[in-house]
């Protein structure tokens, strides 16, 4: 692309805000009542995090993986791609995240999640609860209809934020399952910012919080390993 410096974000926005939010409205109507199921799955993740059993990490990672793959197909490939050709590639990223969650979080070395004990864990829990309970209400609060609400497990934004929260609650640094959610935070934030949406700041702020807490976690883990005489990995 020559003269790339003359392009602005608005040159890449292919649709109007009305069309974008109508997409969620029609999507929510089409898939109803799957939203109830995914919110219940979100509640199940909260319960699993508290449970701290053997299958805790595997189950949480598997639920999230299912949500990412569902969104890749049902939202991005089937619907968003009708107004944004780039959504086909985004769908592939979402599938990759689903597979990463399965491989890294459920199969190879299951996650162990802790909701408390450190600022990072509590921060992760806050992000998850925000994504599950508060984020769907933001749209209606800024003037969109409830039918356009973006709900955990079926809409990309709250699912990405919830995944960041879960990754931060893990007993180790799991950067590889945070990459796609962070990328999506940037893409979604840029889309909403270009559309001049009043809630455009939400996803970038969530990403910054996620990155900040991740860095803190990596630093504190390294420090505690050093203190215990274990070589950093």
């Amino acid at each position: 692309m020559s003269e790339w410096w003359t392009y602005s974000l608005s040159d890449f926005l292919l649709f109007s805000p009305r069309t974008y939010y109508r997409l969620f409205e029609l999507y929510n109507a089409d898939i109803w009542p799957i939203q109830i199921l995914t919110v219940m799955l979100g509640g199940a993740i909260l319960a699993l995090i508290r449970w701290n059993g053997v299958w805790q990490g595997r189950a949480v990672a598997a639920i999230l993986a299912m949500c990412w793959i569902w969104i890749a197909w049902a939202f991005h490939a089937e619907r968003y791609a009708t107004i944004n050709w780039a959504a086909t590639y985004i769908a592939m990223l979402f599938v990759a995240e689903g597979l990463a969650l399965l491989v890294v979080g459920a199969i190879r070395s299951p996650l162990r999640l802790r909701p408390g004990g450190s600022v990072v864990n509590r921060g992760g829990l806050c992000l998850f609860v925000f994504a599950l309970l508060l984020q769907p209400a933001i749209g209606p609060l800024v003037g969109r209809t409830w039918m356009q609400a973006e709900i955990f497990g079926v809409a990309p934004d709250p699912t990405a934020v919830a995944t960041l929260g879960v990754a931060l609650m893990a007993d180790r640094v799991v950067r590889n399952i945070m990459v796609v959610p962070l990328v999506w935070c940037v893409v979604s934030g840029a889309t909403l910012w270009t559309m001049e949406a009043p809630d455009a700041f939400v996803m970038p702020v969530a990403a910054l919080l996620g990155i900040g807490l991740l860095i803190w976690k990596a630093w504190t883990l390294r420090r505690s390993r050093r203190a215990a005489g274990i070589a950093p990995v």
Partner: peptide, 9 residues
């Protein structure tokens, strides 16, 4: 441009 990109709505 933009105006007619309404998908399957």
């Amino acid at each position: 441009w933009i105006t007619f990109n309404v998908g399957n709505d």
